[in-house]
């Protein structure tokens, strides 16, 4: 049973990990703590829900759209809302992203109401048995997607011109300009990428949790904590932190009580901050 729970915990953890990854990406490139990151996940979920469940479009068409739309929203967000405050006092930036979070989540509530919706599995079929552990196919899809995405992002950051710009901007915005890099454009593209990653997390999570307009904030908090546990700023830390929280969530939910999930998440956070305040993978700029 333990392994069963751990495996499905890894699946949710993968989604948290991706949200945390995007969150850290925005922090690294723009020094913006984006409290609206969870809303990008919700946008993807509702786009998928509307296109697939309501309109009946096939998944192969719906999934790319559900990732692309939050990416576009992320891009527009940067241009319109974030850019004017980049470099401003931290509280100003935080206030703006909190405002954005409220606006986006209330917009979702106005359109879709507060009720939960269920989303069909991305893949049909009976659970597989691997080494005696029964694993739902959906969990495998989630885990595989996250591995592919993580490898792809690593490649993107090391090999492509966009990745190189993104890393330069993350390290030193002023000096990046001296390389001829268009820093504003790079930050906007970083937002789009990060929101797109959140979108992937959204379509992966949709079938395993109920989709609802209020999900953005709890998802944000989970990924925020995952990022801190991992060592704020570290990508690998964000991934490991997300997985850890996913597994912990599931174990606590089963062995103790699902009411205590949040409590234990915060307990782990406090513990990490006490024992290893720099996080598991300390990040140096």
């Amino acid at each position: 049973m333990f392994f069963q729970l751990a495996t499905s915990g890894i699946a949710t953890g993968c989604a948290y990990a991706l949200i945390a990854l995007g969150f850290v990406m925005i922090w690294n490139t723009a020094s913006v703590v984006n409290f609206a990151q969870g809303e990008f996940v919700v946008i993807a979920m509702f786009v998928a829900l509307t296109c697939h469940v309501t309109l009946g479009w096939p998944l192969w068409l719906v999934l790319p759209i559900a990732v692309l739309i939050p990416a576009l929203v992320g891009y527009a967000t940067e241009r319109v809302v974030i850019r004017p405050v980049i470099g401003a006092a931290e509280m100003t930036v935080v206030t703006v992203t909190i405002g954005l979070q409220i606006v986006l989540s209330d917009a979702a509530k106005i359109i879709y109401g507060g009720q939960p919706y269920s989303f069909p599995p991305l893949i049909e079929g009976r659970p597989l048995s691997i080494l005696g552990i029964v694993v739902p196919r959906q969990s495998l899809v989630v885990i595989a997607s996250m591995v592919v995405l993580a490898v792809g992002l690593h490649f993107l950051s090391q090999k492509t011109s966009f990745g190189k710009r993104l890393r330069a901007v993350s390290q030193d915005r002023e000096t990046a300009k001296l390389m001829g890099i268009d820093v504003n454009r790079t930050i906007a593209e970083g937002f789009a990428l990060s929101a797109g990653i959140a979108g992937v997390a959204g379509v992966l999570l949709a079938p395993i949790i109920y989709v609802s307009a209020g999900l953005g904030l709890p998802l944000l908090i989970k990924s925020f904590i995952a990022a801190i546990i991992g060592g704020f700023g570290s990508y690998i830390g964000a991934l490991i932190g997300g997985l850890l929280i996913g597994v912990l969530d599931n174990l606590v939910g089963f062995y103790i009580s699902s009411h205590y999930r949040e409590v234990f998440t915060f307990l782990v956070l406090i513990l990490v901050l006490l024992v290893r305040p720099q996080g598991l993978f300390p990040h140096h700029r």
Binding site: R167, A168, Q171, D172, E174, T175, L178, H284, R285
Partner: peptide, 11 residues
């Protein structure tokens, strides 16, 4: 070549 060198330390 900026003041204080400003190399990308983590690269």
């Amino acid at each position: 070549v900026p003041e204080g060198r400003r190399v990308f330390a983590a690269s």
